Computed example of a mutant assay.
Amino acid sequence: MTAPWEEPDHKNLSNLIKKAKRKTFIRNIIISLIVTVVVLFGGFLLNIQLISSSSSQESKDEYALKNISGPNQYISGITGQDGFLSGTTEYNIYKVVEGVPIPWRTKKTVYNVFPFLPFANIGGSVNGLSLSLPDPDMIREGYEYTRSYNGLTGQRLMNFYIPDVNYNGKVLNDLSALEQMDQDKLVEMAISFDKPYSLAEVRKMIPPELTQVWYWVDTYDNRKFYDPYKDGNGNISFANPLFESWVFGFGIHLDGPQMNEKDFIASLEQGLEGKYEYEFNRIYNYLRGDKAKPSESDIRLLGVVLTGNAKELQILKGQPYVRGAVLGAIVDKY
């Protein structure tokens, strides 16, 4: 038999064990909660730091690209939305025609801290819409391509023609169209040259009453790509002009000194290791040839974007250096 006095001791021991287990359980829960909070807070701070770094690099890459592309286009504002190890950024872009701003498009980019792990975001960038519409005059004259327009604003998109490329004689010249519009209309026009020129030559030969806002640089390392070719039926296809989103060059600063060849080379060097490094390296290597780096004399211009009123731009009619002239945005002065 168990002694009477042994039963309370047994119960007390059992209670002590239960209390110890309960304390251990509560302590473990508290520790787990503290660790979870610390880990979550640390992860939150780490996510902010990683996202901030990725967002900064994304903006750097986009501004580097903008410095060598987008004729007469400027970034007016940036909005962003961060997620878990990913985010999106929207760039609002506008044009300026003789001091009049024109909302142009919005570019949306998606970035990830680890590009191979997209997490919540999948995809690339979404650009402003464009649309093509038939032009009766172009159809009548046998053009194989159509007019392009900004799908958001309805404004015309500029075309560019590479010198010596065979377009089957179908090169637009909108200078005569200027006579048919209000002479006070402010217009943007892409001028494609008959041959490459230096920046000094372009600035000298363009009439001073016209504003030179952007210069188109020769970045075409594979001219054979634009040669006519025969399809399987024996028909010959000719090159189409380049849209303004496909050309590279440099322009003026709205609030600073004009860019030059040296600035263009510096802009290329900024993008050699970024998001668009393939295109930057292709252009950089084409310009430098066998040298260590390009020089200012390697920058040859194939065209220029001008602004002015309809009357002023008509001074270009008959100029031997004008191979093509394509209207872009058109606005009123006020």
Results as ranks from 00 to 15, higher is better:
residue 150 N to R: 04
residue 169 G to D: 04
residue 158 M to T: 07
residue 166 N to I: 02
residue 155 Q to N: 03
residue 172 L to M: 11
residue 190 A to C: 11
residue 157 L to V: 03
residue 178 L to C: 04
residue 191 I to F: 07
residue 153 T to D: 06
residue 147 R to Q: 09
residue 142 G to W: 13
residue 147 R to E: 07
residue 182 D to Y: 09
residue 136 P to I: 11
residue 146 T to K: 06
residue 180 Q to P: 04
residue 157 L to Q: 12
residue 165 V to D: 00
residue 147 R to H: 02
residue 151 G to P: 02
residue 164 D to P: 10
residue 192 S to L: 09
residue 183 Q to C: 07
residue 173 N to P: 12
residue 192 S to Y: 05
residue 193 F to D: 07
residue 191 I to G: 06
residue 196 P to H: 08
residue 185 K to D: 14
residue 195 K to A: 13
residue 182 D to W: 04
residue 177 A to N: 10
residue 194 D to S: 15
residue 179 E to K: 07
residue 146 T to G: 08
residue 144 E to S: 15
residue 167 Y to P: 00
residue 161 Y to I: 03
residue 141 E to H: 12
residue 143 Y to I: 07
residue 144 E to V: 00
residue 158 M to C: 09
residue 180 Q to E: 14
residue 136 P to K: 04
residue 177 A to S: 13
residue 167 Y to V: 07
residue 174 D to Q: 01
residue 184 D to Q: 11
residue 146 T to V: 09
residue 149 Y to S: 00
residue 172 L to H: 01
residue 167 Y to K: 02
residue 169 G to K: 01
residue 196 P to T: 10
residue 159 N to W: 00
residue 143 Y to N: 03
residue 151 G to N: 05
residue 192 S to A: 05
residue 156 R to K: 10
residue 174 D to C: 02
residue 176 S to K: 14
residue 182 D to Q: 13
residue 152 L to P: 03
residue 157 L to M: 09
residue 184 D to G: 15
residue 164 D to K: 15
residue 157 L to Y: 00
residue 180 Q to F: 03
residue 165 V to T: 06
residue 160 F to V: 02
residue 188 E to R: 00
residue 194 D to T: 15
residue 166 N to T: 07
residue 170 K to C: 01
residue 158 M to P: 01
residue 182 D to N: 15
residue 176 S to L: 04
residue 136 P to G: 13
residue 174 D to G: 04
residue 193 F to E: 08
residue 136 P to C: 03
residue 168 N to K: 15
